[in-house]
Every structure is written in structure tokens, then in C-alpha cells.
Design a protein around this nucleic acid. Sequence first.
RNA 1: GGUCCCAUCGUCUAGUGGUUAGGACGCUGGCCUCUCACGCCGGAAACCGGGGUUCAACUCCCCGUGGGACUACCA
Length: 479
Amino acid sequence: MADKPRVRFAPSPTGELHVGNARTALFNWMFARHQGGDFVLRIEDTDESRSALSYQVNLLNDLTWLGLDWDEGPQKEGAYGPYKQSERLDIYTRHLQQLEAADLVYPCYCTEEELEEERQALILSKRMPRYMGKCRKLTRQERQQKEAAGRKPSFRFKVPDETFQFDDLIRGAMKFEGTAIGDFIIVRSNGMPAYNFAVVIDDHLMGITHVIRGEDHLSNTALQIMLYNAFGFPPPTFAHHCLILGRDRSKLSKRHGSVSVGEFRKQGILPEALMNYLGLLGSSFTEGREVLSREEMITAFSLERASKSGAIFDEEKLHWLNAIYIRNCPTEDLVSRLQPFLERAGYKTDTLDPVWFHQVIDLIKNDLTTLAEVGSHIDIFFDDKFAITAEAGQILEKASSCPVVKAFAEYLKTAAGNPQEIYLAAIKYTKEKTGVKGKDLFMPIRAALTGRVHGPELDKVFAILGKNAALNRLKPFAD
RNA sequence: GGUCCCAUCGUCUAGUGGUUAGGACGCUGGCCUCUCACGCCGGAAACCGGGGUUCAACUCCCCGUGGGACUACCA
């Protein structure tokens, strides 16, 4: 058996964690857990202008919230650190020197304007825009002149005219022609390593065996393989999964609506549901399973089942899963997860009787699609939130309703015992006294009691409300 | 424009030469029921097109068409 697989998730802290990235992390994590390998987290923060510490903190929080625990990375130093690229700059410098010594790189003094000009000219002549190697042929003297003029060079890799092939675990045999690729920058003029350069070095040094990432990196793979060859590093196995798409089939982005893990969390999506959905999207689990626990997902995961074509993000299916997870969530647990949403909806839960509130949540949790909806489901139990809807008002105005509500209230006035018994007896009494049954019997009571025409089973609502609160609500209609 | 990738119900997918093309979301009919939801039982809904290969193509090959990604001193 070969060494255990090592995979990594390498985000750059330049924004909120996107669900697409979360899915990449999930695939890597499931792969590692399934195979008993290591899941490494590396922060790619070489773009100083876009990276921010707050995003990094956010990133770690979101991953933790999702339950994607890493074996090595920030806050969990291992044998291959440091795990932030900004702390590995000396490593990149050494490797640049190595390539310089082998004459595989050269300094480029072109300005952005010059490069842009070249690009436009190539596009106009209908050719692939790429760097044509102007500075490759510079003499030592010319270079000294540029340096003397104060120009800071970037460093470009001399792309060989070869064909680069690799076997993608998801896509099969892939092939790229070196002739179509211009000499690319590996170190920027500010001294920072460029993405393709840093990943190759880090993935190799960190012992990464499988690079699992989005399809948007497919063409980068050719460049990276060139660098693996240049360094004499054995390339890892690559696997490029499909992208998550918006409704219009383009790469999912902000303009499509909610796209970050944080947004879904705020909307009251459970991490288990989001994980489950992301694992299902653009992939499938063995035996056609769709609702799986974390452990089941790990067991049923297989990279071979990842599909090659992009998958549209379907929020409705996410919500379907979320409702299932809410329903199956133990009420005790659910109550605590609900806290932030209750506060936001204006419920002061610390003054409530916990046993009573537990009953409330237990009763309404089947109706919840997201945690954020909780307020509009429990308001029927709070006098300060309670209100009669137009529909309920119509029910109560019906001629047959008034006697029903009156009779029901009348019975309650003298009733004693536990709420369940009182309710049953009150219904019986009302039925006998008014001769009304079925819908015409229950709906007026429901409307008067909850202010709604829909809701949980009336007997349970009554039991939670209690006799006195019920009587209060009935009063305006019974007099 | 160039390079590369992809193509089964509206959506997510199963399917690896012979199936009534299966499942799920959503939609929809019914049952359950005081209502909504849940649950259960049904229904409508797909192999992009054209050529090959083969006794036989959703499945293999080619060409179209369509969609997507990349095309930065961002990752």
C-alpha cells in the first residue's frame, strides 16, 4: 500500500467563503476521510492588496461551522508548515534561484501598458493573447540598462515547445500544447510569487498526493506540470470537478443571489444540510442515496462519481434537505441553534419557561424550512406577537362561527383539570351544544385561538396555550 | 477571437451495447386530516442534431450545434 493520501484546500482570504469553494473543500475532506488520508488547509495570501485577516478568520470559522476539520493548517501546525504562503516567501525565493541557475527563467521588464498593447494586437490578429517572449532575448547589457533605469523585473518561466499530458481522475486524459502558452510570470515585480509557482512548490513540499479542485484550474494544470518538470518534482494526481452554476448556467457568483456560506448560515440553513447538498451537487453517492449523515457521506463518497458538466445550484432542493435536517434535529439541540434567530425576531427567550418553550419548538419544528422562519411560527403562542389574519377574520365573521366560539369559551370558564382533557371536553360540549362539527367547528376555534387558518394540531396548540390564555383570546369573540 | 472542457426530464442525477431509460427536487392528482405541513399512493416530464461502427446504440467514433471555463505582475 502506498503512503496515505494527502490533499489540501488552498483558499485565498479575499472574500467570504463561496459555496463553490466550500464544495471543493468538502470533496477534498471527504476524499481524505474516506481514504484515511490527511486534509491540509493552506492559506494563499500572496496578493497583499486583496487579502485581509478578517477574511481569513471568517474562512476558518465557516469551515469549522461546516464541520470540515483539517489535520494540518492554521491553528493546527504540522510537520509541513508554515501553512500561510506569506510566511513561506524565503522558500519561493530559493526555488526561483534554483530555476535561474538552470536557466529556465528570465527577468521581464515589460510594463503593464506594453503587455496590454501586445495582448490587444494579438486579439486583433485573431490569435491567442499571450506573452511572445520579448524580454527572453534581452542581452545582459540591456538588462543592466533596465535595472539602472530603476525597473523592477518580474520573472518569467521559459515555456518549452512540448506537449503536456496528464491523467485527470475525473476527466481522463488531458493534453495541452506548450506552443499555445506564453512564458508566464512566476514571480511578480514586487517579489511576490505568482499563483502557479507557489502552488507547485507548496504542494510538493507539503507532500500533496492529490490535487482536487475546480474545473476553472484545468488550464493552469499545464503550467504547473511544466514547473513540476523543471524542478524535477513528481507531479501529484489531478482531479478537476465541475463548477457550480447559477440559473443562467454561468459560474455561480454574487449576481445570482446568495453564494457564501455565511449568507446561508444567516438564512438559517443547517451546516449538515449545506454539506449534504453540496456533496450531492454535481455528484452522487453510492446506491442513489440523497440524505446522508456526515459519516455516511464519507463512506459513500467516490471521486469517480463526480460529474464532468456544471451543476446549477438549486436552492429549493437545499431547502428541502434543510427541512429534513430541522425535523430530525433533537429539539433540545434545535432550541439552542435557534437562539440567534429568535433574538433577531425579537423574542426574549431567557425569560421563558424552558420546558414550555421546548414544547413549542417541538410542535412547530416540522413546519420549518429554515431557522430564520421560526418567528412566524411561534408567534401564535406569544400575546405580544399574536394577530388575527384577514383569512382568520373572515372565518370568525361567518354566522355559524359566533355560537361555536361562545360555547367553547363558555365551557372553559368553569373547566378544570389538565389542558388535554379540558380541550377534548370543550370540543365535545361545543359540538353538542351547537350541533356543528368538522371544519365549521374547528376553524372558528382555530381562528380565534391562533389568529390563523393554518397551523399545528389544535389540541396541541391548546395544551401549550393553556386554559387561561385560550380564554383571553376567545373573549373578544365570545361576548 | 484563441486554447481547453462539457452535453439524459425544468433542475440535480443513475445508466458504462440489448432497460417499459431509474431515483430526487419542483410541478401535479388522490389518500390521510379541523387547516397547512409531514407521510403514503399515482401522474406529466429527458437521452441536442447528423453521420458512421455494430445484429443492436443514451452508451463507442467523427462532424456539427449549444453551453461553460480559461485567456492578469488574481488566485
